[in-house]
Design a protein around this nucleic acid. Structure first.
Lengths: 214, 214
DNA sequence: GTATTGTATTTTGTATACAAAAATGTTTTA
DNA sequence: TAAAACATTTTTGTATACAAAATACAATAC
């Protein structure tokens, strides 16, 4: 039962990631090493790797000899992220339609069953299912690289989840249609539907873009 | 005129990356910190960040408390990488068709002009153009995330370039067709052609897969 | 008052140092 | 002889230490 990794870098990475995603730093804020180090009660050494991890996910930006700064996301970046997601989730769905098992289908269906026919959908709860649904598609695809790549896009998107929200009444049927395509093993259709689904969200984003800030 | 970055991590990263991509380490070989450090005449400190960068590009794998090991790529991973590339380059082409300038079109054409009508195509030279062509499409798309994401897939693919090669006589017309679609501003078609192009390479890969090792 | 230079302080990047864990090799035991 | 237990050596991860660069601040010149 290996638990204690003794890997402070990773621990720091997770904590800082959380803090950044919950907007505990101002956009563009500088992460002073000494400050962060004393904050976590460690030396500055494990920070280097942690910062590098965060930079890889585009959550911070490093300028040599000047430090690391919390990235401020703009709408253009968000659109870029959405486009990538459209493409990657699309092929994930295509392959998922071939690989998916009965059990996985049942599980995916269970995510949305409680919302079907409901007038008053609990939005945070629905979002939870929404996210799990999309994650599962990528997982079921079996493409390890996609799961890895998605990390990058997901973070930026998640931060703005509120701003780019479409009503569940609109997205629920789309989710169910995707699910049906997966069930029928129709990869072509599954890809098409996922891409349309993502693209519609992107359109919403573009409309609401003026309201977005970090 | 800022030149001296004084960033050993990055320098080490680049050097190690080169060494790994040119197979100077055995697959699965352990990168001992002390060894690498003395090899470059530095301390072990700047290695941590360098290793993290390499791990992020999936060139090495880190196991806490045990060290970093050169990743051995298998065919499944390569196929995963190709699928991602198919998707990402596809949308890149779609957007490139809208953004591309006259000068960029001229440049892209110049890459292949010398090969048109030629019986005996110099393969290494052609591969150079091939790679530049694909990089340009992503660059012209203006999607910064794609350029960043592609790093991951490209490395694994590049290593095996020999094994998955299609004859230039076969790919040249495809490249020219993509170019024509870009010229006509037909994003839909450009995406379709790029995806077919990549998918064909993937088929070749699957056929030759038994011959592949690292 | 503003711009510029020089000085002090902070902050980064890297080397050295040390403790804990893993790998290796050796002896002991069944 | 093979396996287990112990001791030794490597090797990793983190803390401390120091030099060089960047920032902040004050003094001087215009």
């Amino acid at each position: 039962m290996e638990i204690q990794h003794q890997d402070l870098s990773y621990e720091i990475y997770k904590r800082l990631k959380n803090m950044i995603l919950s907007n505990e730093f101002e956009a563009g804020a500088k992460l002073k090493q000494e400050h962060i180090a004393t904050m976590f009660g460690v030396s500055r050494m494990p920070l280097h790797r942690a910062f590098q991890m965060l930079e890889n996910e585009m959550l911070i930006e490093g300028v040599p000899r000047h430090g690391y700064f919390v990235t401020k996301v703009d709408v253009d970046q968000l659109i870029d992220a959405f486009e990538c997601r459209e493409a990657l989730e699309g092929i994930a769905a295509r392959r998922a339609a071939q690989n998916i098992t009965k059990d996985e289908l049942v599980y995916l269906k269970s995510l949305f069953e409680k919302f079907i026919g409901s007038d008053e959908i609990n939005v945070p709860e629905y979002l939870e299912s929404d996210q799990e649904f999309h994650n599962m598609i990528m997982k079921v695809s079996g493409n390890k690289l996609i799961i890895r790549l998605e990390i990058l896009g997901n973070n930026t998107i998640r931060t703005f989840r509120g701003g780019l929200l479409r009503p569940p009444q609109e997205t629920l049927p789309e989710h169910l249609a995707i699910l049906a395509a997966l069930k029928n093993g129709d990869g072509e259709l599954a890809e098409k539907l996922v891409r349309e689904h993502t693209r519609k969200s992107m359109e919403t984003l573009k409309r609401n873009s003026k309201a977005i800030s970090r």
